[in-house]
Amino acid sequence: MQWIMKLFNLGGLILLKIKKKVKSEFEPNILVFCCNWCSYAGADLAGVSRFQYPPNIRIIRVMCSSRVDPTFVLRAFNNGIDGVLIIGCHMGDCHYMKGFEYTQVRMVHLKNLIRYIGIEADRFQLHSISASEGKQFSELIKDFTKKIIEFGELKIPKKSGIFELEYNCTKK
């Protein structure tokens, strides 16, 4: 029986070698904010331990999760980013003592606002990952990506990004 399977697999491989254009699946764009001390280190550890997760996330490093302005999240949705994740430290782990507490309070309000605007509130989530939780990081990303794919594309007209300078420079 096994050799039939083997042959079948081999045949399958040959068949697949013929190029075949498949309609591209929905690949969500997900923005993740990580704090420098805990969650970014957790994401690094996931890498060192080779815990795989979907390649849809783009991490922006900030020093502390309390730096994340709610307007960043709104701007992201406005740009057509399908999901936003803020990952800070665990309660009490904050390198800056109270940062994550502030973040938590702020993001409760933001979540309500997002719901009010008419975006699925779970497209935005706040989580905690410590520097030793590589596995948890990859699980979190897997779950979140799955959720966003379920939601589908964010129905907001996309603005295309341009490289801009805060200060005008003298172009040569």
């Binding site: 075949k20 764009n29 020093m63 740009n79 057509g80 980013i81 990004g161 490289f163």
Partner: peptide
């Protein structure tokens, strides 16, 4: 904040979605 200014992070967010959507070919 220096080095993590609002403008800088905003621009990063703006440029996250692809400029040119790459079509994937699955072989």
């Amino acid at each position: 904040q220096n080095h993590f200014s609002k403008f800088q992070i905003n621009k990063m967010i703006d440029l996250l979605p692809s400029l040119d959507a790459m079509d994937y070919e699955i072989v």
